[in-house]
């Protein structure tokens, strides 16, 4: 099981390293979205709940770009058949894909969050960086799990991009909600407030429950 996951993960990361298809697009998209927010809100700097909202909405939409690309190579090149023929547990695919998306999101945030601090954020980023990283990591887990599930659900359909957006947005509303509420005190002017524990708990529980649901149903998406 572990070696299968490692092999799949290595394949995904090599593929992305060679093609550079998803991650650069996601990074560019998030920076473009900041510019759009700057003009849309007509603000030079954002603070507190507005900052949290802008950051997480941008990351969510960038993540949807990545989710759209997730199973495309498998679908078009017949990778699913190869995987199903191999005598391995199908859950390995779920874990590998979710981990890949998690890594993509982390890499995107390595660029997108400093860019956000540079372009829009009012208070300095350094004041609450460790807590912010914690919120980002929990959010990434949630987006990765839900995203893998949604991408698996939508890959065989004709209107793939449409279905992914329509499904992922409502399913990720609780994640965005909890993440923005948790991050709001971190991005206040005049020093970071304490990290609200109940929102972190909600994020963690949501991640855990959706991981279980995905584990339960993902096998059915791969039978063909």
């Amino acid at each position: 099981m572990r070696s299968t996951v490692a092999a799949l993960l290595a394949k995904e990361l090599t593929l992305e390293w060679r093609t550079r298809e998803a991650v650069p697009a996601m990074v560019l998209f998030s920076i473009a979205t900041y510019v759009v927010f700057h003009f849309g809100l007509d603000r030079d700097r954002v603070v507190g709940d507005l900052a949290a909202g802008v950051l997480w909405v941008t990351l969510l939409f960038a993540a949807i770009l990545g989710i759209n690309r997730m199973f495309v190579a498998e679908h078009e090149q017949g990778g699913f058949d190869g995987f199903l023929l191999a005598p391995v547990d199908r859950t390995a695919m779920l874990i590998a894909k979710a981990t890949t998306l998690f890594c993509f999101l982390c890499v995107v945030e390595l660029v997108a969050v400093p860019a956000f601090a540079l372009l829009l954020l009012g208070p300095p980023l350094t004041q609450a960086l460790p807590q912010l990283v914690l919120v980002l990591l929990l959010t990434n887990v949630g987006i990765a799990v839900v995203g893998t599930l949604v991408a698996g659900l939508a890959i065989q359909t004709r209107a793939r991009d449409l279905i992914v957006s329509l499904l992922a947005l409502p399913l990720l509303v609780p994640v965005v909600l909890a993440a923005t509420r948790a991050a709001t005190p971190l991005l206040q002017d005049g020093g970071a407030g304490a990290l609200p524990g109940n929102w972190m708990a909600i994020l963690a529980i949501y991640d855990l429950l959706f991981a279980l649901i995905a584990y339960a149903v993902f096998d059915f998406l791969l039978e063909d």
Binding site: Q156, T157, R158, A159, L166, L167, P170
Partner: peptide, 16 residues
């Protein structure tokens, strides 16, 4: 939110 989610049920079915 729940309503929006379930509204996707038909697009999903139609697309397969």
């Amino acid at each position: 939110i729940v309503f929006l989610l379930y509204a996707t049920y038909w697009p999903l079915r139609f697309a397969l």
